[in-house]
Amino acid sequence: MAMPAVTDRTYLRVRADMPPGHVRTPAYLRGKTGWVERDLGVFPNPEDLAYRHKGRMIPLLRVRFAMKDVWGSAAERPDDTIDAEIYAHWLEPAEAPHAP
């Protein structure tokens, strides 16, 4: 599938919260900005399910991050990418993290 043109991308920032307990948002992506690769639909929130609560349905998005936006100058190759599934309550609107 073709990557969206840089100007068409919807950029989102992962919240940098560090609560204790079970979350499915990897720590290394918190505070990092990527763009929506695809919308996966709604899923029960694992943060509820982990504690035996009924999971509230939350949109799940695949977000693509450029290595340079995750690891900065330590990136092995700046334009390689990481995709991860992130629940919508962890995401907020953002500007492109680097000049396209």
């Binding site: 079970h22 982990a50 035996r52």
Partner: peptide, 11 residues
């Protein structure tokens, strides 16, 4: 149980 409940204990 849920897989999330298992992961919570593992973590």
């Amino acid at each position: 149980f849920t897989v999330d409940g298992l992961r919570r204990v593992l973590e």
